[in-house]
Simulated assay, not measured.
Amino acid sequence: MSKAEAKRCPWSGSDALYIAYHDEEWGVPKSDARALFEKLVLEGFQAGLSWITILRKREAFRAAFDNFDAQAMARYGPRKVASLLKDEGIVRHRGKIEAAISNARAFLELESGPGFSQFLWSFVDGTPKQNAYKKMADLPAETPESKALAKALKSHGFRFTGPTTMHAFMQGVGMVNDHLTGCFRHEECAKLGARFSL
């Protein structure tokens, strides 16, 4: 079966960028701290918007935020914030921009302790959780794990990381495999999950 004929999760739609994201990224377990931090920040910017909006702006976000180098972002001051608020390539929302900067500082604190990846993955016991949903209507907006993660992140000073946002994050980075059982990526991501280790 070719990729053109493959059955996908309905949310991937017909946009080529969205399909590529579904086929190559969504649900693939990630352990790289910088990649996880980038996804966390982008999910925060997505709040109230569609993910395809963020996906289309992702390269502009990377350019604007020093490729999500937390050390660089943690040093951003008022002048950089003013510059970001004028950047038409990204989502110009002061609260989200300021949250991204404070989240970089919180990220660095966790990295100097248990490690950001280890901290995140501890909420699924270090192993991707394999779900078996058949319909989009079955997918929850949040889970006990995403609620626990959101609460823990808040306690460490993170913002724009509520339970629904964190569930989307966990799905995106493969902490949970929420591809529908009829989607060709469900089995592929399950195999990646079985081989995953921190």
Rank of each mutant, 00 (worst) to 15 (best):
F37M: 09
A20Y: 00
E43S: 09
M136I: 15
F68H: 08
W26A: 06
G193L: 12
E98T: 15
E59F: 05
T161N: 13
T53A: 06
E59H: 12
F65S: 00
Q118L: 08
L149G: 06
E25D: 13
L108G: 07
Q46I: 09
E38S: 03
R195D: 15
M136L: 15
F160T: 07
K86L: 15
T165V: 14
Y76Q: 07
K154D: 12
G126M: 04
G77Q: 13
A194Y: 01
C183L: 04
S14W: 02
K135P: 00
A190C: 08
K191I: 04
L36P: 01
G115H: 02
H179F: 05
Y133P: 00
E5Q: 12
L120D: 08
F119T: 12
A132G: 10
L149P: 03
S50L: 06
L40A: 02
I97L: 12
S122F: 06
F68Y: 13
A106D: 05
L108T: 07
G174Q: 01
D87N: 15
A16K: 14
P10I: 08
T127E: 10
R159H: 10
R58C: 06
E59M: 10
V28Q: 03
T127Y: 01
G162Y: 02
A47N: 07
F116D: 02
D138Q: 12
E98F: 01
I19F: 01
L153C: 09
A132D: 13
A106V: 11
L110M: 10
G126T: 09
L84H: 03
S14E: 15
L85S: 10
A82M: 06
R79P: 00
A35I: 10
G172T: 15
E187H: 07
C9D: 07
R8K: 07
G174R: 01
T127I: 04
I97W: 02
H156C: 08
A152K: 09
R105Y: 00
A137D: 13
T127V: 10
M1D: 12
H179S: 05
S112K: 13
E59V: 05
P144F: 01
K30R: 14
H186M: 04
P10L: 09
K191M: 05
G162W: 04
A104M: 07
M175E: 10
K134C: 10
Q130H: 09
A99P: 04
P29M: 09
A6T: 09
T161E: 03
S12D: 02
P140F: 03
